[in-house]
Computed example of a mutant assay.
Amino acid sequence: MAKSSKSEKSDRRQVIDDIRRKQKSAEKRQGMAIVGVCIAVALIIVGVAAYNPVKTAIQKARYSGTPLDEIGAKAGACQKVETKVATGSGEHVPTGTQVTYDEAPPAFGSHWNEAGVAPDPAANRFYTADGRPELESLVHNLEHGYSVLWYDETAADDTSEVAAIKAIAATLDENDTNGRLKFKAVPWTKKDGKAFPKGQHIALTHWTQDATTQEQLGVWQYCSEVSGAAVEKFMLDYPFTNSPEPYVP
């Protein structure tokens, strides 16, 4: 006996409902899969972003309590000191004015002069490329007797080098009981100027003034690796007191 029209409609509806249920189930599974992939990608991105800072922190921790001269490479990683007659003491240009420095990095020259900006406050001893003061501020720090450790992009990409640089800055900070260990560690990037000499990724700079002759010199020492021993000797050989304006913070 043939099915009634009503029965046929009911069967068709059942088939359609089954198809719709299967489609919804497939869409739900697909949606969950997409969400899962998104979560996995997000975790990977977060993990990659966190990896270097965490690794650097772990490596820096190994230097806890280590004397300055035992942090990083031996002093032999550094070349002989170079000097050049310095100019620019007391030559202030308006804040925001860009100064072209011939050397990479600068050890002297015209600079900005604005409280809290130039020179950069003493409390800040370590910078990354994201928050580093402008060169014109740091040159004013040099005029006030700071020794500045500059690290290039190769060193910045090396977590062990960054860890050692951070440890040097922290050690000097901990031992500076009278404000005389004037030191900053800052990055040097391609936009700042020419590269360091081939194979050298660290530079130490200082601005000196002879107390007797008043002769001023810019001082450089380049290193293939960061060396706490070299930093210690450099700052002993070129203390803040032999700069154009030593007793200004």
Rank of each mutant, 00 (worst) to 15 (best):
A86K: 10
K84L: 12
A118G: 00
Q30P: 08
I45Q: 00
E114N: 05
T66V: 12
E91R: 11
E136L: 01
E82M: 13
P67D: 08
D102G: 15
E136T: 01
E143T: 11
R21Y: 15
A40F: 08
G76I: 06
Q79N: 12
I34K: 00
V93Y: 06
F126R: 11
K60W: 04
Q98W: 06
K84V: 12
C78L: 02
P121M: 03
Q59M: 08
Q98E: 12
W150E: 11
V117M: 14
K22T: 10
D120W: 15
A61K: 05
A42S: 08
V148N: 10
S89Y: 07
Q23W: 15
L135S: 08
N124D: 11
I44P: 02
K84T: 06
A104Y: 11
D69A: 02
A73H: 02
T128K: 08
V117A: 11
S137I: 09
G90Q: 07
L138C: 11
K55C: 08
I39N: 03
N113D: 08
K60V: 14
S110I: 11
T95M: 02
D130R: 13
V117K: 11
Y151K: 09
A42V: 07
R62Q: 09
E27H: 14
H92I: 15
P67T: 04
A104V: 14
G72F: 03
S25Y: 10
A107S: 07
K24T: 12
E70I: 10
L135G: 05
E136M: 02
N141M: 00
P67R: 11
K80A: 09
C78M: 01
K80R: 10
A77P: 02
W112M: 02
Q30M: 15
I39E: 04
R132C: 09
G47F: 01
R29T: 06
A129V: 14
Q79F: 10
V99R: 06
V46H: 12
G72E: 04
E136K: 00
T56D: 01
K84D: 11
S110R: 13
A42K: 05
N124V: 14
R132A: 10
T87C: 08
L43D: 10
R62S: 11
I71W: 12
V85R: 11
A104S: 15
Q30E: 14
A77K: 04
P121F: 07
A77R: 10
